[in-house]
Design a protein around this nucleic acid. Structure first.
Length: 552
RNA sequence: GCGCCAGUAGCUCAGUAGGAUAGAGCAACGGCCUUCUAAGCCGUCGGCCGAGGGUUCGAAUCCUUCCUGGCGCGCCA
């Protein structure tokens, strides 16, 4: 049982016995400063405020009553403003070790999400070029969020939306054909807004090998062939990059297939039927203002073409039909203006109990030695995700992406990410895991059988120093940390927890020489504690998609 | 002009469904390796939480008005 729930139950039981209701504003939570005990409650303060009485007297009365009851409480202190500060007996915390070792890889998992059906759509980069570092951040975020949601009892499906239907596809094909034409001598100039990256030349090269007749065939056909070859190649490259980054999408959803199925027209019709669309200046508009947007939006242009927004509405309609209760879209922050529009659309679709949540990912500033590295998609000088992975590896990149909340800018310094210091926390956390395993290996060398170690309370009772308790309390907080990260869709909560846990471990390691203790029981107890710590570090890193090395 | 996000220690950032004396790392300075990995640990220094007003027992957190920075405001995707 969690400390928070335990104290709450105690307090509620006491109040009920006195015929009082538990006040709405009352809470039980870990104090920010551990000097105040393990848990704190403001219940006396709130009751006093309601009854215009003295908080101290009420607090004193509750304290006396609870001390008279058999419990896990070590002490209850009363703080000045009317807070009750609870300290639990070491035995309460010591049993955490047994729970962790028993549950192993699933320690931390809870039924918090109640099996809620969630879809996470992320990356969804246009297939017009390789993934760059910004996409990497979205990929790390979406993937870790998925893992965390699953660990907290959500039923999650992951998806990549392929924008393969727009004018940009033609532009891509034209860019490739233009590069190919430089070889074949066909008169086909490079388009003004074409894609200038070197990868276009590579694709053109490949296209010529596959279809040497590119120089002479019909121009429209040539463009469409080039488009197809380019999209296939680029998409394959994207999949390869994501695989290298330990990221997997279950569903790859094509915009083109959505349009071809007539779903977009159907959605368009549905909006008209509901009187939510109107014609003006030869175009069709969707009244998003009725749902909180600041202006209405065009869904079919005066030339008859449907807009990107139209297919996006249809796409989210499709998601709703698939039964998701929560749709999480991870977007670059430069799309934030799009949020009210799509929220309006989802609301207009009228599915009850469906929530839409856009998670915005801010820009990544790529640096090297503190100096900005120039990036420009148009000019083709961007740094690709693949290049970053080549240089720093997946673990370091992922941890760095997840070490900030998603809606703040992130400085990604290639030199710093390779450093081995607290500046680069991935090593700090991984090192904690490696250190523990080093101790365990040494223990085996000294003839201690790790398998024979059992977390009996008599053994664990020797975990009584400040450092023991600090570590135990942190370990006990892991499940609620995951719930908090899930509820706020914020994997960085977990990153910070892991840094704190690693810090506690490093401190422990320095203060207590585990294998050097005189007392055999103490050695065993501490080995159990370290083993449990390694388990939690491993579980936590796993949810971030980062490995936990046995040695470094 | 309208909107979104941000402004917390010299630097990079946590903390915001209201809770106590606001935290961490880096940098600076001073310590700790004959003992399980010093990729580590300990200590010192460092703050009008952008500014003003309001709400209340209590505000970094909520409301409001400003200031500063980034981004977005298309019959583009």
């Amino acid at each position: 049982m969690r400390a928070q729930d335990y104290i709450t139950t105690l307090l509620q039981g006491h109040l009920q016995g006195k015929g009082f209701e538990w006040p709405d504003k009352a809470n039980v939570e870990p104090p920010k400063d551990k000097r105040f005990g393990d848990m704190a409650s403001n219940v006396a303060l709130v009751l006093a405020s309601q009854a215009k009485a003295k908080p101290r007297a009420i607090a004193e009365e509750i304290r006396e009553a609870l001390l008279g009851v058999e419990s896990e409480l070590e002490s209850i202190e009363i703080a000045g403003p009317g807070f009750l500060n609870f300290t639990l007996k070491p035995a309460f915390w010591q049993q955490t070790v047994g729970e962790i070792l028993k549950q192993g890889d699933v320690y931390g998992q809870t039924g918090f999400g109640n099996g809620r059906k969630v879809q996470v759509e992320y990356v969804s980069a246009n297939p017009t070029g390789p993934l760059h570092i910004g996409h990497g951040r979205g990929a790390a975020l979406g993937d870790s969020l998925t893992r965390i949601l699953r660990a907290t009892g959500h039923d999650v499906s992951t998806e990549y939306y392929i924008n393969d239907a727009g004018r940009q596809m033609r532009m891509l094909g034209m860019s490739v054909l233009a590069r190919a034409s430089e070889k074949t001598g066909r008169d086909f100039p490079f388009p003004d807004d074409g894609y200038k990256g070197d990868y276009i030349r590579d694709i053109a090269e490949m296209a010529l090998q596959q279809a040497p007749e590119l120089g002479t065939m019909d121009e429209v056909e040539a463009v469409s062939l080039c488009t197809r070859i380019a999209v296939d190649d680029i998409l394959q490259g994207i999949k390869d990059d994501l695989a290298r980054f330990n990221v997997e999408h279950q569903v790859w959803f094509s915009e083109k297939s959505l349009v071809a199925s007539g779903a977009v027209d159907k959605t368009f019709q549905l909006l008209k039927d509901h009187g939510l669309a109107f014609e003006q200046d030869g175009a069709f508009w969707f009244k998003t203002t009725e749902f909180g947007d600041d202006k209405d939006r065009v869904i079919r242009k005066s030339d008859g073409q449907l807009t990107y927004f139209a297919s996006d509405i249809a796409y989210h309609d499709d998601k709703c039909r698939r039964g998701f209760q929560l749709m999480v879209d991870i977007w670059g922050a430069d799309h934030h203006g799009y949020v009210p529009r799509l929220s309006a659309a989802v609301e207009a679709l009228g599915y009850p109990d469906v929530a839409f949540k856009a998670v915005l990912v801010q820009l990544v500033n790529l640096l090297r030695g503190g100096e900005p590295v120039a990036m420009s998609t148009r000019g083709g000088t961007f740094v690709t995700l693949a290049e970053v992975l080549d240089e720093v590896g997946s673990d370091a990149a992922r941890f760095m992406f997840l070490s900030r909340k998603s809606d703040s800018h992130l400085d990604f310094d290639l030199d710093l990410v390779k450093q081995r210091s607290m500046d680069n926390p991935v090593y700090y956390v991984q090192y904690a895991h490696a250190r523990i395993n080093s101790v365990r290996r040494k223990a085996v060398e000294r003839g201690i059988s790790l398998e024979a170690l059992a977390p009996e309370s008599a053994v664990l009772a020797s975990l009584s120093t400040q450092e023991d308790l600090d570590l135990l309390k942190l370990l006990a907080r892991f499940p609620e940390t995951l719930e908090s990260a899930a509820a706020t869709l914020s994997p960085h909560v977990l990153s910070y927890y892991l840094m704190e846990l690693a810090g506690a471990l490093h401190r422990y390691y320095t203060v207590h020489h585990v294998l050097g203790a005189e007392d055999e029981t103490l050695i065993r107890a501490r080995l159990l504690l370290l083993t449990a710590t390694a388990q939690v570090v491993r579980n936590g890193l796993g949810l971030l998609g980062v490995s936990a090395p046995e040695q470094m």
